[in-house]
Computed example of a mutant assay.
Amino acid sequence: MKPKLKVTGLAAVRTELRSYGDRVPDAARKTMHRSAEIIRDNAREYAPEDEGNLVRGIKIIKDYGASGRLQIDIGIEMPADAFSKSGTPLTQEGFDRYATLVHENYESHVAYVNGPSRATIAKMARHGEKVGSFFLRTAAEEEEKKLDDKMVNAITKVINEVSG
């Protein structure tokens, strides 16, 4: 359905376009936030889990770039209370190395040596091959397919409301 524009003069068109200009970025930002939450939650579900440090470390990271545009990333940050299997606190370097190893090579390095934990086996029963290496990428690619449609729908909704 094409949005209907009412053209009654230059001033009316400018007012209508300004209204779009104010509301479209808000709608897009909200849509991006919702998709980031979905990606984060799915990545937590798809991440192998031993002590839970990795899963708790998966976060939404917001930043404003040099141009002032909002950038939303999903990343892994070491939880303040991260600990090893033996109960000793983890170092940032150790955590980063572990997170990279699990994300990039879970099946061939971690699971091959130690075998998957009970929590990981339960996740595999729910999600199959999505659990394991590249869990962040898997979650992002899944949502990426839907995000384009969600953005178009959010912007179309704003246009229809303004044109209404």
Rank of each mutant, 00 (worst) to 15 (best):
A139G: 03
F83R: 12
L136M: 14
T120K: 07
P116T: 04
V131Q: 00
A99I: 07
H127N: 11
T138Q: 10
I72F: 00
S133H: 02
E142R: 14
D81H: 07
G94K: 07
E141L: 15
Y112V: 03
S133L: 06
H109A: 11
K85Y: 02
Q92A: 13
A139P: 02
S84V: 03
H109N: 14
I74E: 00
S84C: 04
F134G: 04
K145A: 09
H103I: 02
S67Y: 11
A122P: 04
K145F: 06
P79E: 15
S108I: 09
E107M: 05
L101M: 11
E104T: 09
Y106P: 07
S117P: 06
M124N: 02
V102L: 09
K146Q: 14
V131L: 04
E142T: 12
F83W: 06
G87I: 10
M124R: 15
R97M: 10
S86L: 11
A122V: 08
S86C: 09
S86F: 06
G94P: 05
N105H: 13
S108N: 06
M124I: 11
Q92M: 07
G128P: 15
A111I: 07
A140N: 00
P89I: 09
A140M: 10
D73R: 14
E107H: 08
D73S: 11
H127Q: 07
K85D: 13
G94R: 10
R137E: 15
D96I: 02
E93G: 08
K130V: 00
G87W: 05
Y98N: 05
R137M: 12
T88C: 02
S117F: 03
A125I: 14
P116Y: 02
E143T: 09
E129K: 14
I121F: 00
Y98L: 11
T100S: 07
E129N: 14
D96H: 11
G128V: 08
E141R: 13
G75W: 12
I72C: 05
A140F: 15
R97Y: 08
K130T: 03
S84N: 13
H109Q: 10
N114H: 14
I72P: 05
H109P: 02
F134R: 12
S67M: 09
K123G: 09
G128W: 00
A99G: 07
F135C: 05
G132S: 06
E104R: 10
E107N: 03
S133A: 15
H109G: 02
S67A: 14
K123F: 01
V110N: 00
G115S: 08
G128H: 04
V113S: 08
F134P: 01
T100V: 05
T120M: 00
K130Q: 11
L90W: 03
T100Q: 13
E104Y: 01
K145G: 01
L101W: 00
E93L: 12
V113A: 10
L70F: 12
E77Y: 09
G68A: 05
S117K: 04
R126Y: 04
T138G: 01
A111K: 06
A122R: 15
E104M: 10
A82P: 08
L70P: 02
D81E: 14
